[in-house]
């Protein structure tokens, strides 16, 4: 009888001690606000900077003369696993009068993209890159289909070497 009562109380005190051990940890964080790791997201938008390699979306970098490096070869379209890139090319006669392939539209479906990075990796002329934008919410799905080459942009000639 005595042993069962002492067992009952010793178990009770052990339980309280184990709860106290856990509560000490939570109490420590409660009184030390220096350990807070959460970010105030919409408020810190101005200072929020993503990592340099962050895969936000696919972009085609243009220089100050509105020139890009895409030759329209279609390797990115071929390597894309889920068909999120479509390339429409035109044949335009060049200075010597020979027809030459020029991109008309480089269409990118952000809604289908899985960010595997194969298009950026396999592009032979480094025409594609990853952008830092991450707020992709839009009101209509059609806004997620983007044309990557800017209107009136031309192919940079040095890139053809």
């Amino acid at each position: 009888m005595n042993s069962s009562i002492s067992k009952y109380f010793s178990e009770m005190f052990k339980a309280i001690a184990s709860l106290w051990a856990g509560m000490r940890i939570t109490g420590k964080y409660f009184v030390s606000p220096g350990e807070i790791v959460t970010q105030q997201y919409p408020e810190n938008r101005a200072t929020l900077k993503m990592e340099e390699r962050f895969k936000g979306e696919i972009i085609m970098p243009h220089d100050e003369n509105n020139l890009h490096a895409c030759t329209g070869c279609g390797i990115c379209e071929m390597n894309c696993p889920n068909g999120s890139i479509e390339i429409i090319t035109n044949r335009v006669p060049n200075a010597e009068g020979k027809p030459e392939r020029v991109i008309d539209k480089h269409i990118y479906h952000l809604s289908m993209c899985t960010f595997c990075g194969l298009c950026v990796k396999t592009c032979p002329s480094d025409a594609l890159a990853f952008g830092q934008e991450f707020e992709h919410a839009v009101f209509d799905r059609s806004h997620l289909t983007k044309v990557l080459n800017q209107p009136g942009s031309l192919l940079r000639k040095e890139a053809k070497k």
């Binding site: 962050f54 960010f115 595997c116 990075g117």
Partner: peptide
């Protein structure tokens, strides 16, 4: 992960033959 590969959960970083970059 984000610093090295640009993504946090689904990396697709390892390629046949080596690494993506």
């Amino acid at each position: 992960f984000e610093e090295s590969f640009g993504s946090r959960l689904l990396h697709s970083f390892i390629m046949p033959g080596g690494l993506m970059h």
